[in-house]
Simulated scan of single mutants.
Amino acid sequence: MTLPKGSVYKFDILEQPDTPVKYRAFFQLALFGGFRRGEILGLEWSDIDFDTGVIHIRRTVHYGSPSNIRKSLDYPP
């Protein structure tokens, strides 16, 4: 998709006050952190180091079709 010169694309979901926190966190990690969907969905609280401000990607989640089975793939530490 090519935007016309001088146009600004606005991602309104982050600015709306009624947007649930889980969606804001998801899109902020995806847009500003470069995380993939499966990496975000695989996060657990133990993956976040609040002291250093580091998020460790230790697993990813994959939803396969047609059966929509959730499969977690663990990464070695």
Rank of each mutant, 00 (worst) to 15 (best):
K22W: 14
S65E: 13
L41N: 05
I57D: 00
D47F: 01
E39Y: 01
R37H: 08
S65K: 12
V61I: 15
P66E: 10
D74Q: 11
R36I: 09
H56L: 04
P66V: 09
P66L: 09
L29G: 07
Q16E: 15
P20W: 12
G34C: 10
G64L: 08
S67W: 04
I40M: 06
F32L: 15
S65N: 06
V61R: 02
D49C: 11
D47V: 02
R59C: 02
S72I: 15
R24M: 12
P4G: 05
D49G: 03
P17C: 05
P76K: 10
L29C: 14
P17R: 09
W45H: 04
H62R: 04
T52R: 12
T2G: 07
T19L: 06
A25E: 13
D18I: 03
H56Y: 13
D74T: 09
N68R: 11
L41H: 08
L73W: 07
V61T: 07
T2M: 04
I55L: 07
F11Q: 10
F50T: 13
K10V: 14
G33E: 11
F35E: 00
Y75M: 11
I13E: 05
Q28E: 14
L29Q: 13
F26P: 00
K71D: 09
Q16V: 14
H62N: 08
I69M: 05
D12K: 13
Y9S: 06
F35A: 02
D12A: 12
T60P: 01
V61Y: 00
I69A: 08
W45T: 06
I69S: 05
E15P: 00
T2Q: 09
G64H: 06
L31I: 15
G64W: 02
T2H: 09
R24I: 15
